[in-house]
Design a protein around this nucleic acid. Structure first.
Lengths: 340, 340
DNA sequence: CTGAAAGCGCTTACAG
DNA sequence: CTGAAAGCGCTTACAG
């Protein structure tokens, strides 16, 4: 009874449907793909044949014959980060509604793997591609440029896009948060994140912060970076570590809200007064940021929006228009709450 | 300079590489797909030609000729639920390492859309498929059965699998939590979730709980169901609602940890004593459950594990073995913490 | 170890 | 509105 053992019945093809309906394969193809070009009588007859034979279109053959498919590859650096997941959900919303399928690639923040994913995906003759980030290997950029089809680089906003681009300036986000902290009177500020070497968007936020600290003549510190993906518990550990190692720190800018929320929950349990003893700030704008006590000061990044815009930019180009904006800065918003 | 305007250079094909290297296309195909079957001299020459021409294999043509691709469709009911995302990450881990790509389908808990996704995906001649849940339309089941290739139904564990299956019994999970609550002395227990009509796994947890309440002769209540996807804030609102509407409730079993954590955070802010005034329990085992105060009593479900096992079951079958177990019960674990 | 032939199941482009 | 021919770019199955 194992399915592999079942004698697989010969696949039903267009030709079978055509014979069953007494028309040519071409007519069946039209009835299926451009119903309006086929007379109603035939359309009905063909529909009945499709139904009774259990015909399923072979999309692979279709893609080969027409040199194009409706599958859009999406390449992200991580799936353990909820941010990318939300972006993917945004892309799905728009793409699936327009009849496109998503193919998923995960690079684990490795640019060589990114190249591999890109070149494999190109082999599927997709109509376009969405890729996270604007830093790639030269050969990846060249491959995509030579390819010539629509490409959206998302998450960050920049001037050197391969083609289209949607995101925000992480550097400015870092500046904004740092300015807020300095204005609030904090003087000993530290940045804490995970795999900052690879997650260069986090690194850009650090640099934005560092610039502001420099401008104000404040103490500048190297960012503290932990290995592995970030999670809530780690934020709490990081908080306790830094308070012990560098007691005079009076504010922490975490690379993301997961870490920052974890830190606030831990502070509460350990009796560390936030923001009195130490202020805590994050980045992303998770729903949770507003529920902990004190509320987390953070920067809202429009993740769903980034995904939706990326998909729309692609769809616009598929439809032949130049999208209204080839580069979209979705910006961000500082949310000040009790933690700072 | 828009990529669409660039005169797309003719695609480089196998034949081009063959001519460049002075061999037959067949030899190039072998060098690429089964390097061991080609002499080293030729392999090197072909590699050089591939490099210099910038050849990218056309996977669509390959899939058509060999009647199979390396793309595995994964169909889930939601992407806004972090549970499915983790499962997908687990599948990716295993599948991508083995050279398979994932194609993503989201049904939004709609069985008709599920049927659509399944039949579209079949058109891509995948070697197998992974689908969440064991409840489908009859025609979906029939389509997959007739298809005859490996199919894994994941998330729940059951006896009526189309083919292979990995998950856990949500009914038993509900029984387990209810038994715990009753043992702790709670008597007025209510179940709160989101779109319980569609999310029948949550409904099964409710039923498991209901059975235990009945057995103990306790007050049985209809589950409370909110529309739309669950989120942290909603859990807090639900808590306040139920305390006002049904003051004698002394324990809440939330359909998931997102809701339950939200409820605990809200209780803390509103000065509702947990578990004294009301006990709170969840389901999933999010990392956050251990960080809030009091810690959340919940049921750990091995989400990454489910994904990994599903992928491995598929890979086993691709390799021709019957997997060790065709149906895998990954089970679950009750985690008792301060909230009950 | 290498190659010539046939074909995978569609769609494009041309006729009528 | 409908159809016969050619071809998309590979791989399978057979020879040598």
């Amino acid at each position: 009874m194992s399915p592999t053992k079942m004698p697989t019945e010969r696949t039903v093809t267009l030709k079978d449907v055509a014979e069953h309906a007494g028309v040519s394969p071409m007519t069946v193809s039209r009835a299926l793909n451009k119903p309006a070009t086929v007379s109603e009588t035939l359309r009905a007859r063909i529909g009945a044949s499709v139904e009774s034979l259990g015909y399923v279109q072979n999309l692979v053959a279709g893609a080969l014959a027409s040199a194009g498919s409706n599958v859009i590859p999406v390449i992200v650096p991580s799936l353990s980060n909820s941010v990318f997941v939300e972006v993917i959900a945004g892309i799905q919303d728009v793409a699936q509604a327009a009849g496109y399928q998503l193919m998923l690639g995960n690079t684990e923040y490795d640019l060589d793997r990114e190249y591999g994913a890109v070149s494999t995906f190109l082999g599927w003759s997709p109509p376009g591609m969405i890729i996270a980030g604007m830093r790639h290997l030269d050969r990846t950029r060249n491959l995509l440029k030579r390819w010539g089809k629509p490409v959206v680089e998302m998450m960050e906003y920049g001037t050197q896009a391969i083609d289209m681009n949607v995101g925000l300036s992480h550097y400015k986000a870092g500046e904004t948060m740092a300015t807020h902290l300095v204005t609030q009177g904090y003087r000993e500020i530290v940045f804490i994140g995970c795999r900052i070497q690879a997650d260069y968007r986090a690194a850009q936020r650090y640099k934005g912060m560092d610039r502001i600290l420099a401008r104000h003549g404040l103490h500048r510190r190297e960012p503290i970076s932990y290995d592995g993906p970030s999670n809530w518990a780690l934020g709490g550990d990081a908080l306790m570590d830094v308070l012990e190692a560098t007691p005079k720190v009076d504010a922490i800018f975490f690379a993301n809200d997961d870490l920052a929320v974890g830190a606030i929950l831990r502070a509460q349990r350990e009796g560390v007064a936030v923001p009195k003893r130490v202020a805590i700030a994050g980045f992303n704008g998770l729903g949770l940021a507003d529920l902990v006590q004190p509320g987390l000061t953070t920067i809202m990044s429009p993740r769903l929006e980034i995904g939706r815009v990326a998909a729309r930019q692609l769809l616009d180009r598929f439809a032949g228009h130049t999208p209204a904006k080839r580069r979209v800065d979705v910006s961000f918003q500082l949310q000040v709450r009790g933690s700072t």
